[in-house]
Every structure is written in C-alpha cells, then in structure tokens.
Design a binder for these strands. Structure first.
Length: 520
RNA sequence: GGGGCGGUAGCUCAGCUGGUUAGAGCAGCGGACUCAUAAUCCGUCGGUCGCGGGUUCAAGUCCCGCCCGCCCUACCA
C-alpha cells in the first residue's frame, strides 16, 4: 500500500428481496472503512457494491405485487438499498445491478467464453422438487412422510410429498478444478481468511467437487444463456460475475486491468460461493483469481445469530437515529474482532458510545479546543521548547499510525482502532498531568502553556486523520474546528501526524453528545 | 459419524511458537482535579483460565478423554 497501487474491494451484492438489517450494514461498513483507509493511504482504491436482482423468488414477489420484476427491483433499490448505504455513510465508487446492461451483456460473454472453451456441457438434472419451496431439495432436506404420506419422502418444511423432476441443464465442469483450487489455497494461505474460514473451505474442497448446474428453464427472469435462450443463468453464477462486469470485463480492457483482482469481503455464510465456485469460474476463464476472500463473522443478538424469523433483526436506522452513523460504524468496527462472530447489545453499544466516543474522544476535542479559545483567544500557539512529555505524545502519534497501518493490512480493523485509541487515552492523560489551566494562571509559564496546547492540538488533528475512515462525520467537523487545510478525508493517513492546519480553532459542538434516553 | 471454532474477572474480550505473583476495557468502589460532554486522571476490588487425566523443572498455552454452544460436512438405520 501507499504506493498508488490498485486496491479494489467488494461487498456482496444485496439480494433485493431481503430486508436490510445491521448485518448488511456491517459488511458494507467494513469494506467502506478499508476502502477509505486505502484511499487515504494514496492507493488507487475502488469500492464496489450493488444488487442481485434475478431469480424466481423475485419474479414471484413482483408478480404478486402486480409489477414487472424489473420495476419491482427498481423500487427496492431506490427505497431500501441505496438508502441503506446513505444511512451508514458508505462511500462506494460504483453500484452495480445485475440488471444493468453492462452486467448482462458481459456476463453472457463470459458464459459464451466458457462454453467455447469446453467448460460447459449439457446434462440432465434430476432431483426432488418441492412445489411449496419452488426449489430442488437435497436428500438431507427430506424426511419420511407420516399419515397420508406414509412411506413417501416429504419436504421437511412443508411436510408434503416432493416430485422427482428431470430438467435439461447446462453444467459447469467445476470438478476439474478441484486440484487447482487446493493448490491455490496451499500456495497462497491468505487467499481465504481468516484461518477458520480457510479450514472450512479446504476441508470442503478436499471431498471433491461436483459439477455445477448453471442454468434454469422453469422461469425466465434472468440472464439468457447466449446459445440457448430457453434457459436463464443460475442466480449465483450470474451474481458472482458482477465483480468483473463492474470494472470493465468484456468491454473496457484498460479499466479491467487497472482494477482486477479484488479483495472480497463476505459473510461466512456465503464464503463457499466466493472461495470455491468463483475462483473456479475465473480459472476456467483464464482470469486472475481474487486477491483475497475474507469471511467475516455473524452478529449475535442474545447469543444467537441475528435473524428476521427470530425477531432479532435490527434495522440500521434504529441505531443511527439515536446514536448517529459514526457511532454505528465505530461500534461494529471496534467491538467486534473482524472475522469472528460478535455480540451485539444495546447496552454495550450505549456503554461504548458513552465511555469511548463521548467521554474519550469527544470530550478530548471539547477540552482542547475550549482551552485554546480560553487561554489563547482561539489562536493555535506556536511551538517553543518541548518537554519529554510532549515528545512522548509525538512518539505515540507515530507509533499509533504505524500500528494501525499494519493492522489494516491484515484487515484487523478492530486492532487498528484500538491502536489509535491509545492516542486518545494518552492525550487525555497528558492534559490532566500537564495542567494547562494551572499554567495559564502564571504568566511566567506562557511558553510551557503554548507547548502543551500546541502538542494537544497536534495530537487531536492526528486523531482526526486516523479516525476519518471510521467516523467520517465527526472527524470532518473536528478538522474544520482545528482549521485543518483541505478535507480531512484527503489527508495522508500513513503520515497522519504531519497534517497541516491553519492558525485558529473555531468553536466545536460536542462531537458525540451525551445520550440521556435509555434505548433498546 | 468426520471436521472447524469458541467456552479466561459481573459484562465484552486479549493472552504468539508452554516460563516470573493470568491481562485490558467497561461496570463497581475510593481518592485527586476542574480545561471539558457531572468530564478527565490516579488507586482499588474482582478469576478453581468448561471438567478430568497426562507430558514437563514449568501449561490458560501441548497430548488424551469428556461436557456445553455455534458452524461446516457426511450419512447409517
């Protein structure tokens, strides 16, 4: 990093029929923080997100709502998904929809290419089909029937008999890539991370892969198979291709060469699609595999995986309306080790907001600026002679920056924030021990007072730069109050302590005001 | 059935290739201070490291067995 090299990062694309919850926002924020961080490091960063809009379920709900599937998807994109990005301040560089022409056309090119290269064959899919679920069932999804269905296999969900159906399908010869994938995992341990995710993927692939049915003919809401328009492409095969069609695959070679390959951030529930099927597709097409597939953990509410059915699904706006988007971003990035499951609770959110954001960072900003206003008429003092305590703070600025940079390289976002927070804590301690209010009472201590406030302001500005990717709103306000030059989001984060600012501070409303009301 | 991850202070979690009296933050308690969002700073209380064996001079940290939670995977009858 830091050399202008490409950093292309993606989130999964939202299945438009889902209802947005904090799990979606969590993935987005993580990818956004990484993208912002790299942008501020001088890298050629690019964040892609978007929507997945094909498939039978969407066709069905659209029909039920009396509109075309495209109109249905349009509505959901505008009313649910784009607003979600705004709710948590995602700064995406692109938003791809699988119904975009650029996606459909180039996904077809990809498919045709695989077909021409002999990676696709015509086969017969035979399986048990549940009309209630409208999908094929694995034997493990079936149970023995009881009562009038005694002796027949029935769907575990609907308890009704399933039908044995045959369908002509096109198959992707994924099985031939088993060994190549294993070699990939072996030679590039970082390809799938964290370790736990990597282990799962390897053990799955070691069992051997079967070929993948990639077309459906029972409905038509999807991308047409180019050589047989009676079939549409299987939704996952379609969806995964967004990562390359969005950056010019098939139509803009220069852009594609500039961006690809990507780092994929995904929830661990869809890890396999990204760490197995997707690289197999790319290998077949002769394209570079992703840089990395990172499977993050789940959000646990009350010790259980958050889910709509258990009524634990929480809309991001429920949190941001009370605490703000910065607090949302900070909380989930700080409190959860990225890659592991993490517990969410209103109590924890509330406690961290109060102690870390309001009392720690926010109050630090308030007290420093208030003293510069009070003791120096708002003029930021110039540096005189520095004491050891001052030098220690300067040292911490550098150390925290370096530690955070290293952590972000490993996608350890939580560690990066923890490293930066050492500066927050040290600055608060520094101010208390240096007692600028006492120095201000003695004219003979003027130089010392100036040095202390100068150091405190420097540290605060460094914090603004370092925390900008995580809490962009608060740091933008702080930056303005400190008279920082330009936009804080444009400051080099790898040299955060070298920020430049003006001569005066301006008043600052509480960065993270106390929240008195009980929530939850 | 096979495999993975987790089970450490009230809560959320660190503890790498085994090594001084097991750590942090928050909460609690006591004190200091007043620039600040009743904030900050200092001190303090608090743990049979899931259970039982074993290896070792030494184990939260390795080995075996078991229990609990979650997940992946396979599937007998």
């Amino acid at each position: 990093m830091s050399d202008g090299s490409s950093f292309y990062i993606t989130t999964p694309i939202f299945y438009v029929n889902d209802v947005p919850h904090i799990g979606h926002a969590y993935t987005e924020v993580a990818a956004d923080v990484l993208a912002r961080w790299h942008r501020q490091s001088g890298d050629d960063a690019w964040l892609l997100t978007g929507t997945d809009e094909h498939g039978q379920k969407i066709l069905r709900t659209a029909t039920a709502n009396g509109v075309t599937p495209k109109a249905w998807a349009d509505r959901l994109v505008e009313t649910a998904w784009k607003p979600l990005l705004k709710t948590v301040d995602i700064q995406n560089d692109d938003f791809i929809r699988t119904t975009d022409v650029r996606h459909e056309v180039n996904a077809q090119k990809f498919l045709q290419h695989l077909f021409d290269a002999g990676h696709i064959y015509t086969g017969e899919y035979e399986g048990y089909y549940c009309v209630g679920c409208e999908e094929y069932k694995q034997p493990s999804d079936l149970v023995d029937g009881t009562g009038e269905f005694e002796g027949q296999p029935v769907c575990a969900i609907h308890s009704k008999p399933v039908e044995l159906l045959h369908e002509k399908n096109y198959f992707f010869r994924m099985s031939t890539f088993t060994q190549q994938l294993l070699d990939l995992y072996e030679s590039n341990p970082n390809f799938v991370q964290p370790e736990s995710a990597r282990n799962e993927v390897i053990s799955f692939v070691k069992q051997g892969l079967s070929d993948l049915s990639i077309s459906r003919s029972s409905f038509d809401w999807g991308i047409k198979v180019p050589w047989d328009e009676s079939h549409v492409v299987y939704v996952w095969f379609d969806a995964l291709l967004n990562y390359i069609t969005a950056v010019g695959y098939g139509q803009d070679d220069e852009e594609f060469a500039r961006r690809w390959p990507a780092t994929h951030v995904v929830g661990k529930d869809i890890l396999r699609f990204h760490a197995v099927i997707w690289p197999a597709m790319l290998l077949a097409a002769g394209l570079p595999v992703p840089t990395q597939v990172f499977g993050h953990g789940w959000l646990l509410v009350g010790g259980e995986k958050m889910s709509k059915s258990k009524l634990t699904g929480i809309a991001p706006s429920q949190i941001t309306e009370t605490f703000g988007s910065d607090a949302f971003r900070y909380y989930f990035m700080r409190a959860i080790s990225f890659g592991q499951d993490g517990s969410f609770s209103w109590e924890d959110l509330s406690a961290r907001y109060q102690s870390e954001l309001a009392n720690g960072f926010g109050n630090l900003a308030s007290r420093v600026i208030a003293m510069v206003v009070r003791y120096c008429d708002g003029e930021i003092p110039t540096a005189g002679e520095f004491s050891q305590a001052d030098e220690l703070i300067r040292g911490t600025e550098r150390r925290a920056t370096a530690a955070a940079m290293g952590a972000v390289d490993r996608l350890a976002i939580h560690e990066a924030i923890a490293a930066v927070w050492e500066l927050v804590d040290e600055l608060n301690g520094y101010i208390t021990s240096q007692e600028p209010w006492a120095l201000a009472k003695d004219p003979a201590q003027r130089d010392r007072l100036d040095a202390v406030l100068f150091t405190a302001v420097r540290g605060l500005g460094t914090l603004a730069v370092l925390l900008s990717p995580v809490v962009p709103r608060a740091t933008a306000r702080l930056w303005t109050a400190l008279g920082g030059v330009g936009d804080v989001a444009d400051q080099r984060i790898d040299q955060a302590w070298e920020w430049t600012g003006g001569t005066h501070v301006s008043p600052l409303e509480a960065l993270f005001p106390r929240i008195e009301a009980t929530v939850g």
